[in-house]
Design a binder for these strands. Structure first.
Lengths: 192, 192
DNA sequence: TAAAAATGAATGAATATTCATTTTTTTATA
DNA sequence: TATAAAAAAATGAATATTCATTCATTTTTA
């Protein structure tokens, strides 16, 4: 294990601890000392990897967001019908939300509170371009409603987070059948 | 102005300050001292009205949630068609989100983070009963998709918050036309 | 004049960050 | 290869600040 390897392990442990603690206790109840303890590291060590607490949470956000988009667009193929393309992306998003719900929950928190600073938030948004391109093509072909991307997103993508949230709170179970219903509902809401 | 009157004014000022500060800085960066200052009150005074910080934020949440549901169901009439009933409720929710976006944003934060304790969260959920009843009737009549209320909610109601959020971040403008489109999209996603 | 409400200053606990050392790793030399 | 010096990484304890909460007084109300 090289020096670089070892460093990355520590950094990963710190990011993992941050996610877990912020998810369970909220950012306000997540002191650096607890993060250090959970990552099996001295508090001082955190500052070798991150400037300060804000930097730690910003970097954690971007890291998770990258994992998310990498996964989501990994199987995407531009050369399909609009519906198929949308289905590919949507189902990957759902899969990510179900299988990596720690990551998803963390992202939801970041997206709905001022814990991330604005530049990091902007950076995180960029990654969605392929989906926006697909929608543009869909609108041009008259397959997708000619409405704001924000509305399309709010109706077809964000509900996945809501369902993940409900599942986390134990109010609801995201089964295979449910997921299929949810997909069809998403498609119904944006198709022409 | 009676004693009770005066007290209520202070309590309201404290709740208002809490909402504003939590919205702008996040719960983690909202100390009691700042809340007191913004409400023109001594820090010690907060403790005449609230047990502690957690109690303050819980009560703020319930207060806002009550304002929300009072407004949302105020014009509701059970004796209409499913679609009309849904439209009545949906448009009031949208109106609230547009006109009282400070309240909406605060609720969104509370719904997506662990800053509210569980009993208060449960309490807040109860208020939605009329909508759930409407959906039940709609399913029985074969007008609404026979799927989980959580899915119906995620697709037809939660997107309003997402759009409010996008608007708050200045990415998007919720105009009258947009709102109408959004309503139709909501209906499309739950109707049979 | 008694009771209630409000206050500013004090208190003590938490917390982010820094610092003086120690431990580990790398490099240079024989 | 073995060894020692240098560099890098890691640490636990210290620091200085911030913060929630309390308390002794003062102000307002009844």
């Amino acid at each position: 294990m090289t020096k670089l390897q070892k460093s990355i392990d520590k950094r990963n442990a710190l990011i993992k601890a941050t996610i877990e603690l912020v998810n369970n206790n909220g950012f306000h109840a997540t002191p650096m000392s607890k993060i250090a303890k959970m990552a099996n590291v001295s508090p001082a060590t955190i500052y070798l990897y991150f400037e300060n607490k804000q930097d730690l949470v910003n970097q954690t956000y971007l890291e998770v967001k990258t994992k998310y988009t990498d996964f989501v667009f990994n199987t995407y193929d531009e050369n399909t019908s609009i519906k198929t393309g949308f289905e590919l992306i949507w189902k990957r998003i759902a899969e990510f939300n179900i299988n990596e719900c720690e990551y998803s929950f963390f992202l939801t928190q970041c997206n709905n509170t001022p814990i991330i600073d604005e530049p990091s938030r902007q950076e995180g948004i960029k990654h969605l371009q392929p989906l926006l391109d697909l929608w543009k093509r869909g609108k041009d072909e008259g397959v997708i409603k000619p409405i704001s991307d924000y509305i399309l997103y709010a109706y077809s993508i964000n509900p996945i987070s809501s369902l993940m949230m409900a599942q986390k709170l134990g109010q609801f179970q995201l089964t295979k059948a449910n997921t299929e219903e949810a997909f069809l509902t998403a498609w119904d809401s944006i198709k022409l």
